[in-house]
Design a protein around this nucleic acid. Structure first.
Lengths: 152, 152
DNA sequence: ATATATGCAAAGCTTTTGCTGAAGA
DNA sequence: TCTTCAGCAAAAGCTTTGCATATAT
């Protein structure tokens, strides 16, 4: 997605708006976590976000990461990514896109595809009302595949 | 997928073969867990499997569920399903298929679609070797939607 | 008889919760 | 000032691990 400073700035301002609309405070923690998510390319886990953001905000606590992520999800600005694995992964990308998941190291990347973007959920399935489609490509990343260098 | 007794029996025999090939014992626990997975339609969590299987095998322990699932995965008979959510979900379905996920209650169901089945992973993406495609439809099930369960 | 697996209980992680002082509006 | 939030620490939930006994072959 578009990670230009300009776009990120616009998104952060959008966060501020949405907070005000909902009576939520615009805190530095929320801005920093959202910004980190916007800047990331790897669909970080809460732990990864904690590592990243606490560098610039050492007082940050893990609990705040979790609470902030919940808040961002309920504002509709962020979502969790459907992947196998034990850790939650987050995504601030609101454009249509899909994911590559390495079955070996668990790394997740965005994947955009005209073909996949064209998929539309059926209007109705028995007992279920679909809203969105997401495609996951599972395979191996070069770090895991190429040589046993252990991925990251 | 095909849940006929005949097919399930054949799959269980396949499990036995694979065990022998790998020097693993064919234990009642492994058979029971695999069978429960084959018979299920809801991509159970380890906890759900424990509930189900321990009814007929009360001595079963949760640790055995986890160890057995790991074993079945490494035999290639079972896989985890990519969904949002905090719990692992398993799938013994080896046919091409996709999933419906209720974003409210987390329920997961198989979904088959000619259109989605036709999707083929790109042979190569920069830095990544895709192997399989899975489509996830996210939405709400009728139980959560509250409203009309009028089919489609 | 021997190697492998089960069951138990304890440990390890990730995520959630309750509370108090701090900060945003 | 008043409400909402961050940080802390404790708790809760899910998964893994080590070990002794039991089981498969």
């Amino acid at each position: 997605m578009n990670r230009s400073p300009k776009n990120i700035q616009a998104r952060v301002e959008h966060l501020a708006e949405r907070c005000r609309e909902t009576g939520m405070n615009v805190t530095p923690q929320r801005v920093a976590v959202y910004r980190a998510l916007l800047e990331s390319e790897d669909h970080p886990t809460p732990e990864m976000l904690y590592q990243t953001v606490s560098r610039e905000m050492p007082s940050l606590s893990v609990a705040t990461i979790y609470k902030t992520l919940d808040a961002l999800v309920s504002l509709g600005l962020v979502r969790t990514v459907p992947v196998d694995g034990d850790r939650r992964r987050y995504d601030a990308n609101d454009e249509t896109h899909h994911h590559l998941v390495c079955s070996s190291c668990g790394k997740v990347r965005d994947y955009t595809s005209v073909e996949f973007d064209a998929l539309v959920p059926p209007r109705r399935v028995a007992g279920f009302a679909p809203k969105s489609v997401s495609v996951t490509l599972t395979g191996t990343c070069d770090d895991c595949n190429g040589s046993g260098k252990g991925g990251d």
